[in-house]
Amino acid sequence: MNPWGFTERELKNEEDLEKLKVFLSSFDLVYEDSVDYTILILDNENEIIAAGSLFRNILKGLAVNQDYQGDQLIDYLVSHLISVAKEKGYYHYFIFTSPQMAESFKYLGFNEIARAEQMAVLLEYGNQNIENYYSIMKEKTSADYSLEGAGIVVNCNPFTNGHRYLIEYASQREKRVHVFVLEEDLSTFPFETRLMLVREGTKDLGNVFVHPGGSYIISSAIFPAYFLKTEDAKTLAQAKLDVKIFANYVMRIFNLSARYVGEEPYCMVTSCYNKAMMEELLPLGKKLIIIPRKQISGEVISASHVRKALRENDFTKIASLVPETTLKFLKSAEAKYIIEKLKNKESRH
């Protein structure tokens, strides 16, 4: 119950959804389908005067009608969404919003992480912040940070000879290579497994350091389109936000001057991402090095090919695509349930 006596309820039908979309558009906000929970506050005529949504620990689509903005409805909404997220075990929150709305959240103690001009702003709040997160990670890793290094971001679903080739290529040319493995658990192979396979598969490379990506690198907070597999203007804005965060925090904190990526001929979202990197990294004086993908019998090695071969139980093909360490895992009892899961669904990442 709110102190104003307004009706307050969850979004419940198509009619609500249509109203909400119209309401949000006047704040430059777009309703996104990746939402777990939406709360609406309505006036006597059943019109929306305030709304807010939640996806895990990400607050989005938060807005209050101009006529009610003095009533601290926004404080109320943020508090409400935080308490809902807290019940699910989250103590660290993001707000994904438009530049128009961003200021009102700073006043509530949220700190801006990055913005893509005219399009999107990401703020965070809670018992963790991006600066600390990567600084602690850096302190825990004993590397010589005085020399500039390079960074690579990978999903590795699972780790292939292609990933190995990219990392090895960078490690031969750079003093130090930091590999960040996407932490978001929306891939077939769970994060812990993906991380372990990258670590195992690069163990022999002395100047390569493998880290969890954290909630700031291609996370669903920043880059929902990557996981929603949508391709539109929003995708580029989100991609830019992600690249800026990587450059302004990760590359700065770890003293990295270059980012290595594999060429992306297949996936539109990833190739859009590479375009965003080009546009954002170069003006910051950072290098972007795009490596043609490793091929085997005229075909590039891709994790999706490994997954396809897994579905078909074609271990001869798999052996040609992945290093010994990954193959060993795929044949283990531990991999059985992942392969079963794989056979039951089709997905790009």
Partner: peptide, 18 residues
Amino acid sequence: NTGQAGTVESSDCIITVS
């Protein structure tokens, strides 16, 4: 473990302990 109480409303505070 982590505990949290409060709101971001005016005249309140939100406290997280871990």
